[in-house]
Design a protein around this nucleic acid. Structure first.
Length: 339
DNA sequence: GCAATTTGACCCAG
DNA sequence: CTGGGTCAAATTGC
């Protein structure tokens, strides 16, 4: 049996390794041609995953759960590698960042609104339909311009708050399709729909339409986890703070960690180039790269790492030195990128 | 009471 | 004509 001191030293080593990886990440952001060895070591995502892996490893060591390391590592890698590794979750759709031709189309397609909010055309139809039920009275968009899709194994947060406005069983599809629009529907016309296209392993296809014109995508505090079934379509995870995430008492570090991740996402949205995570980018749309961090959240979320992570923090009676290292680990290194 | 979700109705592009 | 996309009343949850 190894002593706590020994474990601590090894945990420190893991953290130091993670620190070095964070430095690599820094170099990647500074020089995108940066190359390291390893299968996916050269990608920002890969390095982020390694950082997370190191951090989790250190916590597992501290808690004597090293046997789980391999599992944890597999989970992290598994959620980040391969075509299906895109971890924008189904319902947690991302936001478009481009200028939106769809917005224009959508706006243009929107018929003249009367004082009652209906077009003259629609009003003319009242005679044939019940005056009371005006459902479906709208001008459907003509094309799917400015849309793009993502296939992901899980449903994760994408930085935006979405409201579900419809659900439909699609012909020849096993699962229903769920329709979402931005919560700020008055000022933002971004929409998306999510459909589970595969059962084993689960694969969700999210199709985005238009771009977010609302500015507070960092304020979105909820995450739709799974909308595959009607009953499950309203599961949310609150990322406001560590409480929501872990159902445990707030932990300063973890809280800052999660909030930092979303700051990072905003950074990535603006500065990162298109990555290969977009399974299909069509309609002349250059994909917004907003999933670097989301992927990592997925890794935590889908593998149960979040709970493991937080519980480890809770259980470990860390001293000030350890706390300092952890905080500097992210604040000094990663915060350079706006985490 | 308010906001979000559910769900059936309806419209319209293809 | 069909079926995907959207609307909005009803329902649910906080």
């Amino acid at each position: 049996m190894e002593s706590v001191l020994s474990n601590r030293e090894r945990a420190m080593a893991e953290l130091i390794q993670g620190r070095e990886l964070a430095s690599q990440l820094n170099r990647i952001f500074e020089n995108r041609s940066f190359i390291v060895d390893g299968a996916e070591g050269g990608s920002a995502e890969g390095i982020v995953n390694k950082i997370l892996g190191s951090f989790v490893n250190s916590l597992l060591i501290i808690n004597g759960k090293e046997s789980d390391q391999e599992f944890v590592s597999d989970q992290i890698q598994g959620n980040s590698s391969g075509g299906g590794g895109v971890s924008d979750g189904g319902s947690g759709g991302g936001a478009g960042a481009d200028s939106s031709s769809w917005d224009a189309n959508h706006d243009h397609a929107a018929p003249a609104i009367t004082s009652e909010g209906y077009t003259e055309e629609q009003i003319s139809c009242k005679s044939t339909s019940t005056f009371k039920d005006r459902r479906g009275s709208y001008k459907r968009r003509k094309t799917l311009q400015n849309s793009w899709t993502r296939d992901t194994p899980a449903l994760t947060y994408d930085g935006h708050a979405w409201r579900k406005y419809g659900q439909k069983f699609i012909r020849n599809a096993k699962h229903s399709r769920n329709y979402f629009r931005c919560t700020h529907k008055l000022e933002c016309k971004a929409t998306k729909h999510v459909q589970q296209i595969q059962d084993h392993p689960p694969l969700f296809r999210t199709t985005y339409f238009g771009n977010h014109t609302c500015k507070d995508y960092l304020n979105a505090s909820e995450l739709v986890l799974n909308s595959a079934s009607p009953r499950d379509s309203s599961k949310f995870i609150c990322f406001d703070n560590a409480n929501c995430l872990t159902n445990k008492q707030e932990h300063h570090f973890f809280s800052s960690f999660t909030s930092s991740l979303f700051k990072k996402e905003a950074f990535v949205k603006e500065d990162m180039p298109t990555t290969d995570h977009m399974v299909k980018s069509d309609h002349n749309h250059s994909s917004p790269c907003d999933h670097l961090v989301s992927n990592d959240l997925t890794a935590f979320e889908s593998s149960g790492l979040m709970s493991e992570f937080s519980s480890s923090i809770d259980q470990y009676d860390y001293d000030e030195e350890f706390s300092r290292i952890i905080e500097s680990y992210f604040e000094n290194e990663v915060s350079q990128y706006g985490f």
